[in-house]
């Protein structure tokens, strides 16, 4: 129980930090942070299925998140591109989301088929390349995706479903009601996804994934189709990534080519490693702590530079993300909630 206690202490301290480092609008900052943390946490849960459960190195999560988001947004009423062409008809949001998740899973299938037969590090290169291809195509095919101008005015489909009491509550506490709604839905999704994953983890399927992670050849020798298991894992994690991508764009209210850049994937990885690879709740916890740290980096920037500009803020932020990934992997590879017995050190 010790590690859960540690996690609890860290969370409490984080929240104190948030409230006391923001003299005005603590609630607003808090909701903003929790929403982003939820979205990144959900994305990290997806990578955890890949890496923590199955040992698959996915460094192209931004593409899975992106294709889910673009598919969903393009299927609902929206306004597109530099001229802001209004498309006022579309599918009901739940259906669009389901199709978005399917699109993410299909991209997983498409990438997995050629690469899951190869050794692990090839997958890392291919997924990162696929994410870059995705970004370049989104950027270039402006007619379809709006390119750098992106897509706007699609949020209503989601925000129309916002209950009145949330709007009321937000007004009382000076919080963005739209963001609160996205944040709540995100955390509900996390709970829902984790319930399903908890069930799968101790099922024969989950056990088979772990066996694949440990030794594929032995899995094959026992008459099990390792490639099929890896494909399923890849598709499931991709779909979870897609869901997080959908929430991400609803949180921004817009989506453009720069929304799903490769560094997004690395952020999510940092959250995962911090929280604990392989554990169920670790990724979500890691994402919260990650965002608290990100918020903290701005304080460090102000300490280092008199009046930091955007470049310095981003620089300090990412220097710390990089250090975080390295130090966690080297000194605490099990993260906060990870199982010591499940250390991933010696994975080949």
């Amino acid at each position: 129980m010790n590690k859960y206690f540690t996690a609890f202490i860290i969370l409490v301290l984080s929240f104190f930090y948030i409230f006391f480092s923001n003299d005005s609008g603590g609630g607003r900052v808090f909701v903003n942070l929790l929403t982003f943390a939820g979205i990144y946490g959900l994305a990290a849960i997806g990578i955890n299925v890949h890496f923590g459960w199955t040992g698959l190195l996915n460094f192209g999560h931004a593409a899975f998140m992106g294709i889910g988001a673009y598919t969903t947004v393009l299927l609902i009423p929206h306004s597109l591109g530099r001229e802001g062409v209004v498309i006022s008809t579309g599918l009901p949001l739940p259906l669009a989301i389901i199709l978005g998740l399917i699109a993410s899973a299909l991209l997983g299938l498409l990438l997995g088929l050629p690469t899951l037969r190869l050794r692990g590090d090839y997958l890392a290169i291919v997924t990162i390349a696929a994410a870059e291809i995705f970004r370049l195509l989104v950027r270039d095919f402006e007619d379809l995706t709006g390119g750098v101008y992106g897509i706007i005015q699609f949020s209503d489909s989601l925000q129309n479903s916002r209950p009145d009491f949330i709007t009321q509550f937000s007004e009382n506490y000076n919080i963005s009601s739209a963001q609160l709604w996205v944040g709540l839905l995100t955390w509900f999704s996390i709970v829902f996804v984790l319930i399903i994953l908890a069930r799968l983890k101790k099922s024969p399927w989950g056990r088979a994934l772990r066996a694949v992670r440990e030794d594929e050849d032995a899995v094959r020798a026992l008459g099990k189709n390792a490639v099929l298991l890896k494909l399923q894992s890849f598709m499931l994690g991709a779909a979870i990534g897609g869901l997080s991508g959908i929430f991400l764009v609803f949180n921004y209210g817009t989506v453009q080519a720069s929304t799903f850049v490769p560094v997004l994937t690395f952020y999510v990885w940092a959250a995962l490693i911090l929280g604990g690879v392989g554990s169920l709740g670790g990724p979500a916890l890691g994402a919260v702590i990650f965002w608290v740290i990100i918020a903290g980096t701005d304080t460090i920037s102000r300490f280092l530079f008199e009046s930091p500009d955007g470049q310095q803020l981003a620089g300090v932020r990412f220097v710390i993300v990089g250090l975080l990934i390295m130090f966690c992997m080297i000194f605490k590879p099990s993260g906060i909630l990870g199982d010591k017995e499940e250390l991933l050190l010696d994975v080949k």
């Binding site: 056990r207 772990r210 992670r213 440990e214 030794d215 032995a218 020798a221 499940e342 010696d346």
Partner: peptide, 9 residues
């Protein structure tokens, strides 16, 4: 030849 057990199971 080199045993292949699932170490972390």
């Amino acid at each position: 030849q080199l045993t292949r057990v699932f170490d972390r199971m």
